[in-house]
Design a protein around this nucleic acid. Structure first.
Lengths: 355, 355
DNA sequence: CAGAATAAGTGGAACGTTCCAAGATCAGGG
DNA sequence: CCCTGATCTTGGAACGTTCCACTTATTCTG
């Protein structure tokens, strides 16, 4: 009698309730049930009602795997992240994940930990799972060539944060060159003339673009560019520590450093503090990314905001475009890069000395 | 002639190469190919060779979805994370992800962002994907009751970081009570007598256990426990800021605070610094989790190391146990909690005053 | 050399959907 | 009363695997 609450059971035993069971109970064919699931207008209202009730009564759960067996590709999207331990990528991943869910995709996570072999495995696995596409920030050391070997052009893929020369894939990332230029110009305006670049390695496009920005700014101010002031290292906290130590040991240490990213800057500021060299007073330090922790660093980091969430969103949208067979050429996106001034550059003290 | 390099094509057109195509080319039945795929001993070496060659030649890619259609459950595992933006959970996720891959599972990521409704959606989606199991850190506000509604007991699930009263599911987490007790005792030894507890909310077991530890320590030293010194808030940086501001505004502010976790402590230290109250000198602050950023905080955070990676690993292993139908009772795990003393508690200055 | 045992391989149903072609029912028009 | 369309419904093949039951070929045993 009770209209509701007629939930029969939930399949305590492993027996899955299928579309056929629902059909039987509702007194229709499985095709009709399928139509109801698809929200088709072909099915009459009373029938739809009856079917829905049957589903609820039986505790029916849709089986996407079975559905996608026919459908050529699934609702999965691979999220291949080079270092999820870096809060920047964690934020990016959250942005991507959120957007994917809203678009009806299901993200499969893969953290390659900057390991190209792991990346190769992961790509293989994603192919086996018949993903609709992937969003990938390539591991250090992977090239357009190796990627072409590992990923068929027929499956949509977008690159994020690290561009690949020679790859036709859409690329979503911040305007690295402008970001770096802005931060170096800020330091120049504060009076610095010997400005080093710390961290990252030249094989990454991100690095190349940021170094270009550094060069641009120096050139623009007529400062001779000294390549020995580029200290490469792993893009990690220990990498930052190592880089700053190398540059301090050099014959003519810089008065300011711009870093590949915030965690490099965090490693550097920490190492400096341990040597009683105070970032923001004795030396200026600038990061890149503006991760949430930058504000809490000792001292709070001047850095470049990359609008991470927005980029995650764009990655998902761009992939969707590819899936819909739009022209890849129109699907790249460059985020804005905005300098955020905090204490690590010492702006409070010497502002407006030059310029 | 060339032994290798006979890769015919990769299916430039959408036509997927199946087991049947491989069989045809190798001159065997699809059953044999399936056997080869499974690495069965039933197939003779020359045949295996022939089949493998055919696979390579055709660029065959295994279709896991199709396989799991028969197999009752897939190789997917849901990773339901309450806040991936918190570096602690990011590290945990990395640990879990890594272990899952090694065990042959594929992690589907879901960040619920502490939103129980999102969590409900996510659980539904994971069921539809026929996951082998889930590892979940429940969103704030979810209860054993709602979980029971949303997740069938027949599908393996383990809980991490947040226990659920009344749930029979295995739980993997650090020894919160001991960790909190150790940190409070450390503060007591430094001479503090008015020690507040900041952040978190009472609905979370983590909070309850850490508050218990705080109580334990105070009781052990015969200090009267004053519940007004427990300031609840969101477990985030803004939450930490808000909590410290509330406690500072109280009639008798504490000389030391232990925080729900590191990001709460980071929010608190930041707010204090802005008011020119120096953590580690004017007030002692202790965190929990020992995220990578704790060391870089201003000032570096005294905190409790929760052995995050190890816990991620354990989560995966415990889930595997459940999938193998082991007794859930034996699959819980409590990680060690180890106090890491840095500067935010001011240990350098006043150490050994009491005790 | 019959018969059994072993080894290697095969055919086809099954998994839970989708989707096409076709069927059933009914109303209205001539 | 038959035909046409419209509206709703359905049977069954297909998707790419696995796995059971079975066949065939070979070797062993007494």
């Amino acid at each position: 009698m009770a209209e509701s609450g007629d939930r029969e059971e939930g399949g305590e035993r492993g027996e899955r309730v299928t579309i056929v069971d629902v059909a039987r109970r509702a007194g229709v064919s499985k095709s009709t049930v399928s139509l109801v699931l698809a929200g088709s207008a072909l099915v009459a209202e009373p029938t739809r009602e009856r079917v829905s009730r049957a589903m609820r009564a039986l505790g029916y759960v849709y089986h996407r795997g079975a559905a996608s067996l026919r459908a050529a590709s699934s609702d999965f999207v691979g999220m291949v992240i080079s270092d999820l331990t870096n809060p920047f990528f964690a934020e990016l991943a959250v942005g991507i994940e959120d957007a994917l869910y809203k678009l009806g995709f299901t993200p499969i996570l893969a953290n390659t930990n900057e390991n190209p072999e792991r990346q190769a495995q992961v790509l293989r696995s994603l192919r086996e799972h018949n993903v609709a596409g992937i969003i990938m920030s390539p591991a250090r050391g992977s090239s357009a060539w190796t990627l072409a070997q590992q990923w068929p052009p027929s499956i949509p893929a977008v690159l994020t944060m690290r561009r690949m020369v020679g790859s036709p894939l859409p690329y979503i990332g911040p305007d690295n060159r402008k970001g770096a230029r802005d931060s170096v110009e800020h330091l120049l305006r504060l009076g610095h003339r010997r400005i080093a670049y710390l961290g990252g390695d030249g094989s990454m496009s991100t690095q190349q673009e940021r170094v270009e920005g550094w060069r641009d700014a120096l050139n623009g101010w007529g400062i001779p560019v000294n390549d020995s002031l580029i200290i490469e290292s792993a893009p990690t906290r220990p990498g930052g520590r190592e880089a700053i130590e190398r540059v301090l040991a050099s014959a003519a240490p810089p008065t300011a450093v711009v870093c590949y990213n915030d965690i490099v800057a965090m490693g550097a500021t920490r190492a400096l503090t341990e040597r009683a060299i105070l970032p923001g007073r004795d030396i200026a330090v600038v990061g890149f990314d503006d991760i949430a922790e930058a504000e809490h660093n000792a001292p709070p980091l001047t850095t470049v905001n990359a609008d991470t969430r927005e980029m995650g969103q764009r990655c998902a949208e761009s992939l969707l475009g590819l899936i819909r067979r739009e022209d890849p050429a129109g699907l790249s996106f460059a985020g804005v890069a905005r300098l955020v001034v905090r204490e690590s550059c010492g702006a409070g003290r010497q502002d407006r000395r030059a310029s």
